[in-house]
Amino acid sequence: MKVALVGDIGGTNARFALWRDNALHAVQVFPTADYTSPEQAIGVYLAAQGLAKGEVAAVCLAVAGPVSGDEFRFTNSHWRLSRKAFCANLQVEHLLLINDFTAMALGMTRLQPDEVRNVCAGTPDTTRPAVVIGPGTGLGVGTLLGLGEQRWLALPGEGGHVDLPVGSAREAAIRQAIALDTGHVSAETVLSGGGLLRLYHAICALDGHAPTLGTPAQITDAALHDDPVALEVIEQFCRFLGRVAGNNVLTLGGRGGVFIVGGVIPRFAELFLRSGFAASFADKGCMSAYLEGVPVWLVTAEYSGLEGAGVALQQALAQHA
């Protein structure tokens, strides 16, 4: 019997799993640097599962970047993919390529109660869009809309590249300090792993501190050990994230709630939950009341991208059944 395969491919790692009976099976992670192409990595994965080429009928891959045409070039990776060549090589009947944040958004429909933490209390309006936002290597932003009958629509976008919003003179000074190095300051310029370091250098420059920390991990570790400068960096990071998330809710009418995903925030989850995120999220002047009651959740699930790829594949195959 033929099976389906799902993948979530980033710049550093590719995650693959079999999708069977509406669930993930046999998840494995492959460093992209160790393989010349996704076909090679998937071939190794299938062999490990005792499957030969031709035994996988359908594949859905979540990939970083806009998806169109036959060829896709992976962001931050040497991998390339031709749809036609991929299907021929692996003898696959159906290949679905989707944006990685489309998959992440769809993955929110599969969350279990122990995979989320409440950030802002509220009741989601299931008839309205939900916002999915994730600081990681970059800043991903997506939209999830329920269509009824257990069907969902995920809208990808490039919301991580909107201008960074500021709400105080201090934030304006920080933004200007960063602009001296980067020029245009997008939300992603600050709200990402590399952005954490930019924020640290800006605060050091404004306050006359000699920078001693050289990586995002060092900043996080220092904050967790009560370093005052690192703590301010984390606090300001959380406040900027609150402003960006609140802007998205206003833009989309996103009263379905906000899901915070990605690899950055879980590293300092307790600091985040005690931060000024919620205050900045709702700091919208005459529209502040609109943000009241919009729930915000911190997602801790490990394989939301893979789960979302499974949902996307299931919906696509159902449409062609």
Rank of each mutant, 00 (worst) to 15 (best):
E39D: 08
W152D: 07
L61N: 00
A177L: 01
V131I: 15
L306R: 09
F237M: 09
E158Y: 14
R128H: 09
T182F: 12
P266W: 03
F101T: 11
Y45C: 05
D114K: 03
C120P: 05
V233I: 06
D114Q: 13
A222K: 12
A103W: 14
E55W: 06
A62L: 02
P165E: 13
N13R: 12
D8E: 06
G246N: 08
Q314E: 15
V229A: 07
G134R: 00
A282R: 04
L5W: 11
D8P: 08
F72G: 02
L147T: 08
S168R: 04
Q319H: 13
V296T: 07
E302W: 00
V27D: 04
N89C: 14
G43P: 14
V294D: 04
A130N: 01
A222Q: 08
G122A: 09
T127W: 10
E188F: 03
E292D: 14
V166L: 01
H94C: 11
E292V: 10
A316N: 08
L317F: 01
R80K: 12
S186N: 11
Q315I: 04
L250C: 02
V27K: 03
G148F: 08
T220P: 09
E307S: 12
P135G: 05
E55Q: 13
P228R: 04
G256E: 04
L224F: 11
V233W: 01
Q28L: 04
A301S: 14
Y45R: 06
A312Y: 01
E71R: 14
R255L: 07
F237R: 12
A121N: 10
F72R: 01
M104N: 06
L197I: 13
V190G: 01
R15Y: 12
H225N: 09
V249H: 07
Q176T: 09
S37Q: 01
Y200I: 01
W297K: 02
G157C: 05
L306K: 12
C120Y: 10
F268A: 08
Q315K: 02
T143M: 12
V132M: 05
G43A: 12
P66F: 07
V258I: 02
A279N: 00
P38V: 00
P216F: 09
Q176V: 00
A103R: 13
V131H: 05
H78C: 11
G195M: 04
R267T: 13
V190L: 03
H78T: 15
L191C: 03
S82C: 07
G293N: 05
T143L: 13
P129H: 02
G193T: 13
R170P: 02
A179T: 07
P228I: 02
L144E: 09
L147W: 01
F72D: 00
G305H: 07
P38G: 00
L46N: 11
V119T: 03
A14P: 10
F240W: 08
H320Y: 10
M287A: 13
A52Y: 05
T123C: 01
V299N: 04
F259C: 10
T143F: 02
G253D: 06
A223N: 12
H78V: 14
A202L: 12
S280M: 00
L81G: 08
A103E: 11
H225A: 12
Q49H: 03
F277Y: 14
H209S: 10
H320N: 13
L199T: 06
L155H: 08
P124S: 08
P129I: 00
A318D: 14
R15A: 07
